[in-house]
């Protein structure tokens, strides 16, 4: 094993909480394989009943937007207030909007 491989690969961990609707990123950890990543995620991130479901993703499989592109990607949405559905009155029966 070469020196640069001495650490186990990095995994990103997503947990769905009891109340939550979707899996939420909670952190990362090291593990030798996917099975071990699930086990480690269970031990590190769900000790206090934080979740009922776990996703783990190899960190190097995540494609991230580049910080230097953020002006072009996100700023144009700044002045498009009409895209927000805040001009409608929601009936009380509609949850989770």
């Amino acid at each position: 094993m070469s020196d640069k491989n001495k650490n186990w690969p990095l995994w990103e961990v997503f947990i769905r909480s009891r109340q939550g609707l979707g899996h939420k990123h909670v952190g990362s950890l090291h593990a030798a394989d996917a099975e071990m990543a699930i086990g480690n995620a269970r031990d590190v991130y769900t000790r206090r009943q934080e979740g009922v479901s776990i996703w783990v993703v190899p960190a190097d499989k995540i494609i991230a937007s580049a910080p230097e592109d953020s002006d072009a990607l996100f700023d144009p949405a700044n002045d498009k207030i009409y895209r927000h559905p805040t001009f409608y009155v929601l009936p009380d029966e509609v949850n989770h909007m």
């Binding site: 186990w8 950890l29 090291h30 593990a31 086990g39 480690n40 031990d43 590190v44 000790r47």
Partner: peptide, 8 residues
């Protein structure tokens, strides 16, 4: 040997 295993 590893932080994760320490917690386990």
């Amino acid at each position: 040997p590893a932080l994760e295993e320490d917690i386990a």
